[in-house]
Design a binder for these strands. Sequence first.
DNA 1: CGAGGGTTTGAAGTGCATCAAATAGTGTGG
DNA 2: CCACACTATTTGATGCACTTCAAACCCTCG
Lengths: 241, 241
Amino acid sequence: MDKVIKKLSQHNIFNACEESMIGRLCAEGREHTYPKGTILFLSGDEAKNYFLIESGWVKLYRETLDGTQAVVDILPANHIFGETSIFEDGNYPYSAEVVETAIIHSLPLRKLKTEIEKNQTLALNMLNAMARYRRRQDQEIEHRAIQNAPQRIGCFLLRLTDQKPKEGKITIHLPYDKTLVASRLGMQPETFSRALSKLKSATGIEVTGATITMDSLDQLARFSCAACSSEFPCTDLKCST
Amino acid sequence: MDKVIKKLSQHNIFNACEESMIGRLCAEGREHTYPKGTILFLSGDEAKNYFLIESGWVKLYRETLDGTQAVVDILPANHIFGETSIFEDGNYPYSAEVVETAIIHSLPLRKLKTEIEKNQTLALNMLNAMARYRRRQDQEIEHRAIQNAPQRIGCFLLRLTDQKPKEGKITIHLPYDKTLVASRLGMQPETFSRALSKLKSATGIEVTGATITMDSLDQLARFSCAACSSEFPCTDLKCST
DNA sequence: CGAGGGTTTGAAGTGCATCAAATAGTGTGG
DNA sequence: CCACACTATTTGATGCACTTCAAACCCTCG
């Protein structure tokens, strides 16, 4: 299980933590490959483990009795989720589904809790991560309130780029299904499709399947970031946790 | 400044913390009365203080260049805000405006940071508070995604009640302007007005100015909670931090 | 009493959802 | 390598919820 230890120690939360401690955390960990569609847990389930994504994508969502669902987030490799359940009532606050076949490590929450209570560095890292997450959520609420569909897509695309300096043409690949992107952005697939066309004619981007190219990000930023309180290189929005 | 110490020690974040430590936190604190409309700070300002509301109401919001604003939260007495700025870049992530004349204590972030780095209990309390806040924000996103305007109002009313057992008639007072409630719920004042009428005819509540009465909460819960992933006595949603 | 803000009402417009159906794309077995 | 089955995506038509603009109303407070 060296691999997990290495992965974990690269993670923000375990920054500057001793390997021995991380080793203890992983002691009862398991690695599993889950096919697309697997439900890892449901909202309200008793939380025994938290998870590290080795590869693939995982959707976090909440669902009403009649089946309507609200997507909380869609997480890529190297993300951790379910770890906040050590606080509060010990149940998962959302459901998790594998949306691209994934290799996932499960780690026991119990151990994490023990370590956090002893280890100041770990607790502080965790606080930092939570604060960062909180900002992202605030932004999310803002975006859904004041950006329209084409702008939300533009903003999403901007956050997918590596912020690399302007080098000739810029290419972005959608990381997963358009339908999923739509749900991530809180809109219907049909709306996504139409909004992407609008974005195209408004900013001059080129769309070919899941690949999007453009001459520079400026146009896109001008279009999308007009309806946002942050200014363009909105760095804190990048994925993390 | 005994008053502040007392207030603080009742607060979740300082649960089980020594008075002496809280005393150190308050050392450079100040109390101020601010009239309605006062801007306490703007998003992006360097964060030197965090705040405790003694009385009154404070609106946290974010604003785009063209003046459109998204309300993040509206906080009542006994709430703390601005404290998360000790993490990350040290700037406030939102603006704060007094919306009902308020008495507010400002406390230096610097001292809080020092104490958090030393005091495990404090760090853990803070983690708990952050986790709770995170859940609330997740809920907020869900609500805005799947509840319609009348349901959002109903849900808001339910969260205002004291969860007291059914005793004859139930009375709820809106804590501030209808216009503000509307912005808190992410809708226009006009929409709020019309949605409240719909809620009235759908659930049989009585509305007189800012006072709302009904025979029982059941009707309201049945109407609003249908479009929510949590079941009715959704306790975690109650205010806190 | 009159001014001004909060609130309601009306009329019209916009954006997104929904339903329905066509089209493109992908993977399968033959 | 092709035809079929199935899914993802697009397009069209329509409806609804919320917004916007405008104006009336109400209520409070000087």
